[in-house]
Design a binder for these strands. Structure first.
Lengths: 224, 224
DNA sequence: TGACAATGTCACCGGACGGTGATATTAAGT
DNA sequence: ACTTAATATCACCGTCCGGTGACATTGTCA
């Protein structure tokens, strides 16, 4: 429909060709996965000679860098904190962020592809993407910590809390995305499985924060 | 030290050559990772011609199958439930299993490599390994559920609980194994980071089970 | 109109991959 | 000792990869 075959003279337009290449990265990632992400594939997908990748970007790494900047596959802080009010309790806020994170990542194949990619290899590309995400999580932590309720909750390690939950979700979502249907007896490929998970998550969140009822109760839980 | 170079005539021994190939798989996985796992690499590592892989096993997939059977890279239920007594409370038992899981997987590069592999691709081999692990987790769940304390705790979903924690650990361990030093502000490459995680984990466990104090308290937490 | 740079195409290189046929070497059976 | 089959090695094929130099086409500006 859109991508023509070779011969018909395309009007020469550097900017358009650049965009063609950037878009091709996303298409290759979505359709073939990162294992097929190479100079040849991207150029072929863009219907353009691969030498232009070197000329316009310097190489695939730099092209990926641009793609990483322009892509919106990662939710920002505003999206993650949607529904979190300043007077929210920690449990409410955490539950909101968790739900936002889940819905933000689900059904975004490219994002899941990249997350899976980060697990397997660690090169210039994934390190750049990783830094972007780390920056986002830093902002998120900062914003959550600025909530009144959190400032009162002693002993709460919001970073460790977030690391555990986001890593669990990321792992389960990626596994499900890759085709695993059952993990630890949970049907992660069906809504029912995720309902069970969300129920357990809610209990964990409530339990975690209820152990620190807005100050006090410090002598009770500090055994280490 | 052990692996000779090419020329010196080795005594002909099919069984020994088979073993050489199987061991080479583990070495390649441990040293180069699954991305380098190919006919050529394995044969080169074994110091043997690659055609023998076809002759003795049929191909790399079948060789991997044999390797998967003979390897002991996955902890069994006994190892995971070490220290869990029949009179343990759910929180104690869960904490024990969590700690055992962590120590069992850490410093096992091949296991971590395989776990990372399962995230990325899904083929005959990873599916087989996945089934083995799923079977183990099923047994583990069954054993834990048979504890008295658990049978009393209503509303506890031990499978969902385990899925969340094991997936979080797996993800963080693999990321750390791959070289990521900071995740969500946690230094997962250093003991300090893991201490923070373990502290948060303990609070989560205690909080999760304390929400269900051995029966009763059912009308309090069943909002969904 | 003519020169020149920008844009895009083509052909090729060396290397690694999976896979296979032919050949050499060794061990065993008679 | 001689045959024979098992064991192991070698050489080669086609394909894809990342990367690069040479060439063709187009637009711009003097």
């Amino acid at each position: 429909m859109d991508t023509e075959s070779h011969p018909p003279h395309r009007p020469r337009d550097k900017a358009a060709t650049r965009k063609r290449l950037i878009d091709a990265v996303g298409r290759v990632l979505a359709q073939k996965g990162f294992s097929a992400l190479g100079i040849n594939h991207v150029a072929r997908e863009a219907g353009v000679d691969k030498v232009l990748i070197y000329r316009y970007f310097g190489g695939l790494a730099e092209l990926m860098d641009v793609y990483g900047r322009e892509g919106d596959f990662w939710p920002n802080v505003d999206e993650l904190t949607q529904g979190v009010e300043s007077e929210s309790t920690p449990a409410e806020a955490a539950g909101r962020v968790v739900a936002n994170y889940l819905s933000a990542i689900r059904n975004r194949p490219v994002t899941l592809e990249i997350l899976a990619w980060e697990v397997t290899v660690r090169n210039e590309l994934t390190i750049r993407l990783e830094k972007t995400r780390e920056q986002t999580s830093r902002e998120l932590t900062h914003r959550l910590a600025s909530l009144e309720a959190f400032s009162d909750a002693r002993g709460v390690d919001i970073e460790a809390f977030g690391a555990l939950f986001s890593s669990a979700f990321t792992y389960l979502l990626v596994r499900s995305f890759r085709g695993t249907t059952v993990y630890n007896g949970i049907e992660i490929g069906k809504p029912l499985g995720w309902e069970r998970l969300e129920r357990a998550i809610n209990r964990l969140i409530v339990g975690y924060f209820s152990a620190f009822p807005n100050a006090s109760a410090r002598e009770k839980g500090e055994e280490s």
